[in-house]
Simulated assay, not measured.
Amino acid sequence: MRDGLPDEAHADAAPRRPSLIYPFDQRPEPGEAIEVADGVLWLRLPLPFALDHINVWALRDGEGWTVVDTGVASSACKDAWRAALAGPLQGRPVARVLCTHMHPDHVGLAGWLTKKFDCRLWMTRLEYMICRVLVADTGREAPEEGVRFYRACGWSDDQLEGYRTRFGGFGKGVHPLPDGYRRIEDGDQVDIDGRAWRIVVGDGHSPEHACLWRAEDGVLISGDQVLPKISSNVSVWPTEPEADPLSDWLASLAKLKREIPADALVLPSHGDPFRGLHDRLDGLTRGHERSLERLQRMLKEPKRATDVFGALFARAIGDDMLGMATGESVAHLNCLERRGRAVRELDENGVLWWRAA
């Protein structure tokens, strides 16, 4: 799972946390649901991670439900679904499953639900295809490209061995996906129970992340594109080491601010529903820009990716967070390079050293 670090873990978290409004004083227990807008039910499923829950949404759709996101493929999530389907979902069938993006906590039970109800999976193309690729890594040996990438970032031999041991774990949280899907794209209007939901696609956290916007009553299902108390992970991974996902992420935040009103009710994948979208978007943008400024100052002397955690995170990074922290560091370094503010040099040991331009 690649959802991100709490705001408190980031070095720029404390100064200006936006003031958000949380309209609901209760959270649904697993198997229960709370109606947060007309025909929109909030379900909260358990996750076996430090981030211990995911919000999923059941949208009334005729005699059935459109489900948005699914939880990870675990017995606890399946049990919660069984209880919800028999209880607050009134035994009505799932008419379709729509996944915002391809991370296991969002798509993990898509194949289980679509098979159970003989319905279609709706996703953007890149999310579906990349998920299939990552699931196919299960059981493979760690690729040499990945070892070279993390060695270049400054990982030790023991840390590289940990990467080799953990590689291929993505597919363990994903029930086999259906072999076909229904593609959604940015700007599509999806009719759910006779009401229009517009697909708003973002990038950076994942390659083609779909949010759902119901303008009629101002409801945004934001997935991981904007969260109230977690800074979504924006990382570079070994498959595309020169990528600049942070620039994509910042552009996506600006797009959401242009296209979605400030008073929208935001239904995030983690944390509680909230109002105050534009304040949150501004806070996230300021935070990353401050991080880039601090990072550039740190690069007066050459640094590896693992040497710059102090510029980005306010707490020590242990092995459990090493992959995400390294990915975020490289994302910020690549962004500085793209802006002409940093340069890199590969030494004879295959390690990348970064310095301010």
Rank of each mutant, 00 (worst) to 15 (best):
R2I: 10
D3R: 09
D25C: 04
P28N: 04
V36N: 15
A50R: 14
L51N: 02
L51W: 01
L51H: 03
D52T: 13
D52N: 13
V56F: 02
G64R: 08
T66I: 05
T66F: 09
G71P: 02
A73G: 01
S74F: 01
S75K: 06
S75R: 10
C77E: 05
K78P: 02
D79F: 04
W81H: 11
R82V: 11
A86Q: 08
P93R: 10
V94S: 07
C99Y: 00
H101A: 06
M102K: 04
M102G: 15
G111F: 04
L113Q: 08
T114K: 04
K116H: 13
L126M: 07
M129N: 12
I130Q: 08
T138Q: 07
E144G: 00
E144Q: 09
V147R: 05
Y150T: 02
G154N: 08
L160E: 11
G162N: 07
G168R: 14
P176V: 13
R183C: 10
R183G: 04
V190R: 07
A196I: 05
A210S: 13
C211S: 12
C211Q: 14
R214D: 10
R214W: 10
E216N: 09
V219I: 08
D224Q: 10
V234S: 02
E242V: 00
A254W: 01
L265G: 09
H270R: 03
F274A: 05
D282M: 03
G283N: 00
L292K: 04
R294W: 09
R294L: 08
L295Y: 09
M298D: 15
K300L: 11
K303D: 01
I317N: 11
I317Q: 03
H332C: 12
N334C: 00
R338Q: 15
R341Q: 15
E345H: 10
L346K: 06
L346C: 02
N349Q: 12
N349S: 11
L352G: 00
A356G: 12
